[in-house]
């Protein structure tokens, strides 16, 4: 796909990149994967139980 109006610049861009289009949003597949991974990590951080220390039980 032509990225710019300059054929020279366009010739420098690799042609085998995969790009997703959604309205005005144009994003590469690897970038989409990065963002999706961040969202998944965020959700997992909220739901995965955190290991608690057993020391607090001994002090009671």
């Amino acid at each position: 796909m032509p990225f710019t109006s300059s054929p020279f610049i366009n010739s420098l861009v690799p042609l085998d990149i995969h790009v997703l289009h959604w309205g005005f949003i144009t994003i590469t597949v690897p970038n989409t994967i990065v963002i999706a991974t961040m969202i998944i990590v965020f959700i997992l951080a909220l739901v995965i139980p955190f290991p608690t220390s057993h020391e607090s039980g001994k002090r009671k």
């Binding site: 965020f42 997992l44 951080a45 909220l46 995965i48 955190f50 608690t52």
Partner: peptide, 8 residues
């Protein structure tokens, strides 16, 4: 604070 959200 014992939650993974606090490690970031």
């Amino acid at each position: 604070v014992a939650s993974w959200i606090y490690v970031f």
